[in-house]
Each structure stands twice: as structure tokens, then as C-alpha cells.
């Protein structure tokens, strides 16, 4: 019975959502600060595209749309997941997670989904404010919009798996900060969140194409803008799904390997 099997994970998602709500103030404030970052990007591109000449095929309204979509995907699956994981692994609290009758990876995903509810709600509010301040963005036609939504939903598991896999590295290193810096840097550049991938030289673009990161920002943004439509969009979504499958299996294997070499402090 799937509903019985799901019950523990639903409870985990609920409690993660609740525990985020217990600290509404920092949560909302940190989001306010992300808005400032969005503001910087919007301000910069407004100046650069003020003349009306498109840059690398982007007009100002299009760039606005691109930045907003990548802002939304940036809000989803915050660092909460990997940092709590890192903390529990390094402090040995992971021992308690291991005494619970749930799959570790699924439980972390459930935890992340609980947060996503809150993250998407707040992202929506911010987008509304940004639209009011910087002007409307083009809205795609219905079929394209549906494709966009599918790719947006796929961002959540994909980004979770990237974050989770890097969190697993805590079993091999004591310094998670470095890992998370590296992961954030690589994914900022190669996902297209920093700047659309067409701004990059050819070799960097090819690198981005073959790695999973483009699926967490560039893919939904390009589909939204219609720069990838029809079969092209379907192909990009297929790549997202493929990476989800590959990373899920890979992370499970890594987790099993990690358990073999687990040492817990205070043994």
C-alpha cells in the first residue's frame, strides 16, 4: 500500500516545513536579501540593455524573464538540506538518523520537499514584487507554459540530488564548507544562473551541455522564453529526467559506500 509506505516521509516533510516556520523571521529576511541580489542583476542588465540593442539575443524584457526564472529556481532547494546533513554527519547525530526505520536518501528528499513548499511560496511573492518594479515579462503560450512547468518541477529533485550528493562528501572530508563553496560556484556558472550560457565561449558551453547543472536554471528559463520549444524543449526535459535517474542511483550507491567507512565520534 503506497500510502502506508509514504506515511513516514510525509511526516518528515511536514515537520521540516513546521521547523522552518518556527523560524519565520530569519527565513523571510534571508529571502529579502536574495531579492537584493536579484535587484543587482536586474539593475545591471537594465543599464546594459537600455539602448534597445539585444545582447547575445536577449532583449531587456527577455533578460528580465530569464533572471526571474533563474531566481525562482535559485530559491528552490536551499542550502538547508546539505548544511543540516553536514552538521548531523560531522557531529555524529547521523547515528540517530540511522536508528530510524526510513531510507536516509528518501527521508532527506522528503525534508527538502517540505522546505520547497515554503520556498516556492516566498519566491512567488518576490517575483510579483519584481514584476511590479521592473515591468512585466512576456508570458508563453499554453503548451509552452506546460512544458515550462514540467521542467520547473524537475528542478526540485535534480537540484536536491546535486546538493545531497555534495552533502554525502561529509563522510570523506571534515570540511564541508569547501565542498559547498565549490559546488555552489560550479553550479552558479554551469547552470546558467549567473549569466545565460550563450554568453560563454564555445568550450564552456559544451561543458555545461554535458553536465547536469544546466537543468536547474538554464533549461526552465530557456523553455519559458521559447528559446527552446517543441522537441527541443522535450529533449531538454528528457536530459533533466535522465540526470535525476542517474544521480539518484549514484547517490544511493555512494551512501552505501559511505556507511561502510562511517566512524562516529565518541565510539
Amino acid at each position: 500500500m503506497p500510502s502506508v509506505a509514504m506515511r513516514p516521509y510525509l511526516a518528515i516533510a511536514r515537520i521540516s516545513w513546521r521547523s522552518a516556520l518556527a523560524y519565520r523571521i530569519p527565513f523571510v529576511l534571508s529571502l529579502c536579501m536574495m531579492v537584493f541580489n536579484l535587484l543587482a542583476m536586474l539593475s545591471l542588465w537594465r543599464v546594459l540593455l537600455a539602448s534597445g540593442h539585444p545582447l547575445a539575443g536577449f532583449t531587456w524584457p527577455e533578460m528580465r524573464a530569464y533572471l526571474l526564472v533563474s531566481f525562482v529556481t535559485g530559491c528552490l532547494v536551499s542550502s538547508f538540506t546539505d548544511f543540516t546533513m553536514a552538521f548531523r554527519i560531522q557531529s555524529g547525530l547521523v547515528a540517530l538518523d540511522l536508528t530510524q526505520p526510513v531510507h536516509y536518501q528518501r527521508a532527506r528528499f522528503a525534508q527538502c520537499l517540505g522546505m520547497t513548499v515554503l520556498e516556492s511560496a516566498t519566491a512567488a511573492v518576490v517575483c510579483g514584487a519584481a514584476l511590479a518594479a521592473f515591468g512585466a515579462i512576456p508570458v508563453p503560450a499554453l503548451p509552452q507554459l506546460a512544458l515550462f512547468l514540467v521542467s520547473l518541477v524537475a528542478v526540485v529533485p535534480l537540484k536536491f540530488l546535486i546538493v545531497y550528493s555534495s552533502g554525502l562528501l561529509c563522510f570523506w572530508t571534515h570540511n564541508y564548507l569547501g565542498v559547498s563553496f565549490a559546488r555552489a560556484a560550479v553550479s552558479a556558472v554551469l547552470s546558467g544562473a549567473l549569466v545565460p550560457l550563450v554568453f560563454f565561449p564555445g568550450w564552456l558551453r559544451i561543458l555545461a551541455e554535458v553536465l547536469p547543472f544546466q537543468g536547474i536554471a538554464s533549461t526552465p528559463a530557456l523553455i519559458y522564453l521559447g528559446q527552446a520549444s517543441g522537441w527541443d524543449a522535450v529533449r531538454l526535459i528528457g536530459i533533466q529526467l535522465l540526470w535525476i535517474a542517474v544521480l539518484w542511483a549514484g547517490a544511493s550507491a555512494a551512501w552505501n559506500a559511505a556507511l561502510r567507512r562511517l566512524t562516529i565520534h565518541g565510539g
Binding site: 572530508t173 571534515h174 570540511n175 565542498v179 559547498s180 565549490a182 560556484a185 556558472v189 549567473l194 565561449p201
Partner: peptide, 26 residues
């Protein structure tokens, strides 16, 4: 762990430069 951190920090400092580079290329 020290080298992992140095590597991570080096990468994250490159991010802004990549952005500046990409923008000034256009």
C-alpha cells in the same frame, strides 16, 4: 580538507570574474 577548502574558495572567487568576463566580452 584544507586543500578542498582552498579549491572551493578559489572556484567561488572565480564566479564573479566569469560573470564580469562574460559581460565585458559583449
Amino acid at each position: 580538507d584544507f586543500w578542498i577548502l582552498v579549491f572551493g574558495v578559489g572556484l567561488s572567487q572565480c564566479v564573479g570574474l566569469v560573470f564580469i568576463g562574460a559581460v565585458f566580452a559583449k
